[in-house]
Design a binder for these strands. Structure first.
Length: 436
RNA sequence: GCCGGGGUGGUGUAGCCUGGUUAGCACAGGGGACUGUGGAUCCCCUAGCCCGGGUUCAAAUCCCGGCCCCGGCCCCA
């Protein structure tokens, strides 16, 4: 027989893991809902062209692309932003603004799996479309912070950068390959300073331009320290305007009560080419080799690229497979009881007895208890053994002799105490023992 | 796409270097000892060398390729 394995970079999620994931999803979903974002879902696959429109070469390279039976070129979604843009352009351009949508679903990228990276992974994200103001940036950044807080995470920061300033910076240096420069700057934290300097020289920067880059990446920390320095580095009017926005952003974040979790890091570029202004990423210290646990930013011209009227937008995505191991490593995820509350076993093979077991189980289930019965029809000894192994606290034993008197035995597995009760009282009895 | 380390029953492993008994052990699973009372013990059973090729009288073991896992690069969540 041929053994079929999982496709590379995919995961089976077992009951314990699913319980934890659902817990995390629920916490995040509650916050999203409280911020008045509404859930949407788009198709798992779209025309490949949709994802190519955005033209980030790397994204296209990582597409899970194939031809369907009708000869259509389609791809599994690598994120939801393109689909959301498509949906917005085709049906929501005249909707009252802003449009506030969220999603919690799976994405697919054909990459080499490693720590915190799979080919199928889940993201919880939001898109806020139609708001140009800094209030919109503040809204989504605050929401991201509150989402992490809702999962119990406390030591993390959301680092905020700005594409306008980076563009300006590239212009100051006379660099044409601004994206290339941003990529390089983005790597600052991974390299030792001398390696970083070397990489910048290799990129073609002159000595004093390298110095400028080094002073740029110094622009990191609380706004009170960073903003004055940034004002010295950036002299243009547009930069001054952008810095003013950042200042306001932090004032707003204070009003949201989450300012302490946010920092400025003007060296953040983010990989996607479509970001236009404020960008941000969430980092939580860990020894798991996991980088950012979420990221986002403003993409004011993407809707246009998808054929819509110019429409400002911003959003973020939280990487579930990165967040969960971090929560787990900090003991922030509760343990979930998967075992039933009560287990019904029967003695004998007669249909009457088997029916009674099903019936008693039904009554317990109808009463809202997590109840199971021994479908295997084990011997009593083995059945108790089974219940014990799973830590099932209560067992109902149905035997012929007692049943003749209309009674069943309810056993407390921890103490071994048993009571013979009328069959119709079994729900009441079990409920009492469970303390509900 | 590139680089490094790995792949033995369901799980964890011994064996591999130095080719040669029926591939050992533990746990888990099923059954029994015990036909109406568990957590103990004993017995039995189920079940494995990732796939393909090569070398050899002989391959889990050596060689090559592929697949998958872990990690790194690129990139990103």
């Amino acid at each position: 027989m041929t053994k079929i394995e999982r496709v590379k970079g995919t995961r089976d999620l077992l009951p314990e893991q699913m319980a934890k994931r659902r817990y995390v999803f629920d916490r995040i979903r509650e916050v999203f809902e409280r911020y008045a974002f509404n859930e949407i879902l788009t198709p798992t696959f779209e025309y490949t062209r949709l994802f190519q429109l955005r033209s980030g070469e790397e994204v296209v390279r990582q597409l899970y692309a194939f031809k369907d039976k009708g000869g259509r070129d389609v791809s599994l979604r690598p994120d939801l932003t393109s689909s959301v843009a498509r949906l917005f352009v085709s049906q929501f351009q005249n909707a009252p603004k802003p449009v506030k949508w969220y999603y919690i679903t799976n994405m697919f990228r054909y990459e080499e799996p490693q720590s915190g990276r799979l080919r199928e992974f889940w993201q919880a994200g939001v898109e806020l479309i139609g708001s140009p103001g800094i209030e919109a940036d503040a809204e989504v950044i605050a929401l991201m912070i509150e989402s992490y807080l809702a999962t119990g995470l406390k030591d993390f920061t959301v680092n905020i950068g700005d594409r306008v300033l980076l563009d300006e910076f590239a212009r100051m240096l006379g660099v044409e390959d601004d994206i290339g420069l941003m990529r390089l700057i983005d790597k600052k934290d991974k390299l030792a300073e001398e390696e970083f300097v070397e990489a910048l020289m290799d990129f073609g920067l002159k000595r004093d331009d390298v110095e400028k880059v080094l002073s740029l990446i110094e622009l990191k920390g609380a706004p009170d320290e960073v903003l004055p320095k940034a004002r010295e580095l950036f002299k243009s009017e547009s930069a001054a305007e952008e810095l003013k926005k950042i200042e306001e952003l932090f004032e707003l974040l204070e009003a949201y009560g989450v300012r302490d979790y946010a920092l400025i890091d003007l060296g953040i570029a983010r990989g996607f080419d479509y970001y236009t202004s404020i960008v941000f990423e969430a980092i939580a210290p860990n020894e798991l080799g996991i980088g950012s646990i979420g990221g986002g930013g403003r993409y004011d011209n993407l809707i246009e690229v998808f054929g819509g009227k110019p429409t400002p937008a911003t959003g973020f995505a939280i990487g579930i497979e990165r967040l969960i191991p971090i929560l787990e490593s900090r003991g922030l995820l509760p343990e979930f009881e998967l075992r039933p509350d009560v287990f019904v076993v029967y003695i004998g093979r007669e249909l009457e007895i088997r029916k009674k077991a099903a019936e008693v189980t039904r009554m317990l289930r109808r009463a809202g208890m997590k109840a199971d019965y021994d479908i295997q029809g084990r011997k009593l000894r083995k059945a108790l053994d089974y219940a014990n192994r799973f830590g099932i606290p209560i067992v109902v034993i149905i035997g012929k002799k007692d049943l003749a008197e209309g009674r069943v035995t309810v056993r407390d597995m921890a103490t071994g105490e048993q009571r013979l009760v009328p069959a119709e009282k079994v729900v009441e009895e079990v409920r009492g023992m469970l303390g509900r």
